[in-house]
């Protein structure tokens, strides 16, 4: 019985080895030693203050994006979940729209909106809120704006399912017992959906960390993030080994962050449960 099971999984395991593990090993091996001693490529990369700034910038953009997506996404999903089902369908369609469209097209839309001669500056200037056009494009701000727009649907989708299943009477029970609506939100609603929020956070964070199109199109040349740096090393400088090094660093940082987020939320969850 057991033998047969192993036999049956063999094609799957083979495919995994061939298409996932083998290429990974192919990428990793050249980065380990390089010209110097073992791991020197990684050390040199991490020691460079320019690279450090890029890593920090990537982390900062991802963190900021995740927090903004969270702040907008959670109430938005709750609001949608509580709508009449006909309006709900329309709203979901509107929210999901960015996911159905090409990322490049979406980012070009932001270029039109945020540029020096863009619509936003134009409006702000014409109502005399500002005297000189703001530089909204080709910096961290525009990357965050673009990423938030891109990833809100992911948060909404991962929350909507469980929110629709929440029993409203449970919240009403809290209210009758004297809980202010904000208390009900934090002590009753949030704990019930914390695992789904966690899923959403991990999705958004890791996708922002690794996304390439948005920082490439909306970020400035002086404001590289790790993914654009990889591209630059591989395609412009033709230094594939360094590109691999950066990729591995990116993967390790992402996984590390995800683990930290998970344990943080678990801790929070436990405290809420005993509150």
């Amino acid at each position: 019985m057991k033998k047969r099971m192993i036999l049956l999984t063999f094609p799957g395991i083979l495919a995994l080895l061939l298409f996932v593990v083998f290429p990974m090993v192919q990428i990793i091996i050249p980065t380990l030693s390089g010209q110097g001693s073992f791991g020197s490529l990684y050390l040199n990369f991490l020691k460079d203050t320019y690279n450090q700034r890029i890593i920090l910038r990537t982390l900062w953009i991802s963190l900021l994006t995740t927090i903004i997506v969270l702040i907008i996404g959670v109430p938005l999903s709750l609001w949608i979940a509580r709508m009449h089902h006909r309006i709900k369908k329309i709203l979901i369609l509107v929210i999901l729209f960015p996911m159905l469209t090409n990322q490049i097209v979406l980012n070009f839309a932001w270029i039109i909106l945020l540029g020096k001669n863009g619509i936003i500056n134009h409006v702000l200037l014409s109502i005399h809120l500002i005297s000189r056009p703001l530089s909204l494009l080709y910096n961290n701000t525009s990357i965050v704006i673009g990423s938030v727009y891109l990833f809100i649907p992911i948060m909404v989708v991962s929350l909507l399912g469980s929110l629709s299943h929440l029993n409203i009477e449970v919240e009403e029970a809290a209210t009758v017992l004297g809980a202010h609506p904000s208390t009900t939100f934090f002590k009753i609603i949030l704990p019930q959906i914390s695992t789904d929020i966690l899923t959403g956070v991990i999705w958004v964070f890791s996708w922002t960390m690794t996304s390439y199109t948005t920082p490439q199109l909306l970020g400035g040349n002086d404001d590289l993030v790790m993914s654009t740096l990889i591209y630059q090393q591989a395609m412009t400088v033709q230094n594939w080994t360094l590109a691999s090094v950066i990729s591995i660093v990116l993967i390790i940082i992402s996984v590390g962050c995800i683990l930290i987020i998970r344990s943080l939320i678990k801790l929070l969850d436990r405290r809420v449960a005993h509150a």
Partner: peptide, 24 residues
């Protein structure tokens, strides 16, 4: 507002807080 009324209510569907123990 409901939360200021100082009422008690037993719901037909119980409406217990699923993430809290009986004590909580």
């Amino acid at each position: 507002p409901v939360y200021k009324r100082d009422f008690g209510m037993v719901f037909q569907s119980y409406a217990l807080f699923p993430h809290l123990t009986v004590f909580s």
